[in-house]
Design a protein around this nucleic acid. Structure first.
Length: 278
DNA sequence: CCACCATTAATC
DNA sequence: GATTAATGGTGG
């Protein structure tokens, strides 16, 4: 009995107060992305090494500049924002083949998790756009999604090692495994072009799937009809340099809203505004 | 080319 | 030790 609380192993929700930062998630979904899981909670804060004794009063996204700053070589010039992130690998950085694990900021994770819950497979363009918004590289986004998919799978297996059939219910209730249909890039050529308008997915393509997202989404607002206007006021034409700021705004909203809805809208907006810079 | 999988390797 | 980003190998 008793269904698991939700998180199989991570169970970040029990410890981090920030868990609500991203999602209250009354539902127990499956892939454990539920709380956007923030196992590292203040990972970013400390990871700066600067020692920020400050609790996360306003941090949340203080770190920004995610850009990872890791890439030993594969790292686009970005907008010229990630630069001071250098830690101490300037001298012997290349000497060693360190792998450098990028620590994504909470905001980034939130957005990524959100998106993942809606779509397990993103199209090429979507990934590019997302990466632009989050200031990450396409590769990073792609990798992240891949890892998430794997995690999801593993998690399911752990729960039902030998179920044999897609019982998929109980926690995830649907396990949107979303078969990529082989090509996750050409499966939705329509969206990547024009259909991908503001609400696009909200009530069109994926709505047929109907996953849990709607559950809590509608719980908060009547969303479902058409936002038309984001509850959160974002800067419509934010300069790339302000991207981070914009994100922060979104992040703040998250704190108050406790839901990733804001991010959603924000994302939709951003994506919309970006004609795509490929 | 892509995604999937196993593995490595860094951070917590 | 656990989590997880990043890499390499493999198959469609």
């Amino acid at each position: 009995m008793s269904v698991d609380p939700g998180c199989p192993q991570s169970l970040p929700c029990s410890e981090a107060p920030n868990c609500r930062d991203c999602s209250p998630v009354p539902l127990t979904y499956g892939p454990e992305e539920d709380c956007s899981s923030l196992p590292m909670s203040s990972a970013e804060l400390l990871h700066t090494e600067t020692a920020s004794p400050l609790p996360y009063a306003m941090d949340l996204l203080t770190q920004d500049s995610p850009d990872s700053s890791t890439s030993p070589k594969a790292k686009p010039p970005d907008s010229g924002s990630g630069e001071s992130t250098v830690k101490k690998e300037d001298t012997k950085a290349q000497v060693k083949k360190q792998k450098m694990r990028t620590v994504f900021s909470q905001t980034q994770l939130c957005v990524l998790n959100d998106r993942f819950q809606k779509q397990k497979y993103l199209s090429l363009q979507q990934m590019h756009e997302l990466s632009g918004i989050l200031n990450l590289t396409y590769k990073q986004v792609k990798t992240w999604f891949q890892n998430q998919r794997m995690k999801s799978k593993r998690w399911q297996k752990s729960k039902w090692p030998k179920n044999g059939n897609g019982v998929t219910q109980g926690c995830m209730g649907n396990t949107p495994s979303n078969p990529p249909v082989r090509n996750s890039q050409a499966w939705n050529p329509a969206w990547s072009d024009q259909a991908w308008s503001s609400q696009s997915w909200s009530s069109h393509s994926w709505s047929t799937q109907t996953w849990y997202s709607q559950a809590w989404n509608s719980s908060f607002y009547n969303y479902g009809e058409e936002p038309g206007q984001p509850y959160v006021q974002f800067q419509q034409n934010y300069p790339v340099s302000d991207l981070e700021t914009t994100l922060e705004t979104a992040g703040e909203s998250l704190k108050y809203f406790g839901t990733s809805q804001a991010l959603d809208l924000f994302l939709n907006y951003s994506v919309n505004m970006q004609p795509d810079d490929m």
